[in-house]
């Protein structure tokens, strides 16, 4: 069976969530791999959620916020931006490809942009393959491995 990536998306209520909604209303086809969590602002996305998601088995994370200058809360998207920058560095040290975390500015009217990003990101994660982060830390004891053999 072909690998179906599991992608968690954090979308801000005002721009990207509405934009993704618009894509749906406009019957624009986008991959079902993306599982959306709505937050009021992309600034609400705590970096621990992303690590938690990877731990729980997500293969990629997409964060969507308003375009710079368009944030409903003035500057929440800038805070998301700087957190994502720092988190990328941390992910590298964990051995997670930074391409698995993506931040996109999609406005409420950009249903087509959402479709494009969702399709492209899903294809990218698909080519990167499964992350299986949790399993990496659950390496079985040599003895158990022997038994398994």
């Amino acid at each position: 069976m072909e690998f179906e990536p599991r992608i968690i998306a954090f979308f801000c209520n005002w721009c990207t969530y509405t934009g993704a909604d618009l894509a749906g209303v406009s019957r624009l086809k986008s991959p079902a791999n993306i599982r959306v969590i709505r937050t009021m602002c992309s600034g609400r996305v705590d970096p621990t959620f992303i690590l938690k998601a990877f731990e729980l088995g997500a293969d990629g994370i997409l964060i969507g916020g308003c375009h710079p200058g368009d944030c409903h809360y003035s500057e929440g998207n800038y805070k998301a931006l700087r957190r994502v920058h720092l988190l990328r560095k941390m992910l590298q040290s964990f051995g997670i490809d930074e391409k698995r975390l993506r931040l996109e500015w999609i406005s409420a009217s950009e249903g087509d942009v959402y479709q494009h990003v969702a399709t492209e990101f899903t294809a990218q994660i698909r080519s990167l393959g499964p992350l299986n982060w949790k399993q990496r830390f659950e390496q079985k004891e040599p003895k158990e491995q022997l038994i398994a053999v």
Binding site: G43, R44, D46
Partner: peptide
């Protein structure tokens, strides 16, 4: 209710109602 402070609190003392 944007939640920026909730995400930033190092002590997790801030809760966003509903989120």
């Amino acid at each position: 209710g944007c939640g920026t402070c909730v995400a930033a609190c190092p002590a997790s003392a801030i809760t966003g109602k509903g989120f």
